[in-house]
């Protein structure tokens, strides 16, 4: 595994040219980028929607998700997702 890119203080933002939106015809959240589209599952959608709407630290993002999901213990999942999303070029630390 490579060194993790994100820590509690980093601010994840969508990579240049990436756009998050809800697609009625697919009935799901998607990430659009040059000549392509990624359909997002529920959890990925929740995280990327927040990243696309508001600049905040990973710690703040996790706190917000915990409120939305009844205090679920999701820290590890979020970090894992952020690293994967970074490796896919979807997001980067600001």
């Amino acid at each position: 595994m490579a060194e993790p890119v994100f820590n509690a203080e980093s601010v994840p933002v969508l990579a240049l040219g990436y756009r998050f939106q809800f697609e009625p015809a697919q009935n799901c959240n998607v990430l659009l980028y040059p000549e392509g589209m990624v359909k997002l599952n529920g959890a990925a959608g929740e995280i990327l929607q927040r990243i696309s709407e508001k600049k905040q630290t990973v710690a703040e993002l996790i706190a917000e998700l915990k409120v939305a999901f009844n205090g679920a213990d999701l820290d590890d999942d979020v970090y894992t997702f952020l690293e994967e999303a970074y490796n896919n070029d979807w997001i980067r630390p600001e």
Partner: peptide, 30 residues
């Protein structure tokens, strides 16, 4: 928990939205 159906980035005329082969045909690329 990553999203699915990743595609490649820039391309010229052909492009690539290979994602939804398992679904109904849609003109994803105009």
């Amino acid at each position: 928990m990553t999203g699915s159906d990743q595609n490649k980035a820039p391309g010229s005329i052909g492009g690539s939205i290979g994602s939804v082969r398992d679904q109904i045909r849609q003109p994803l690329w105009l």
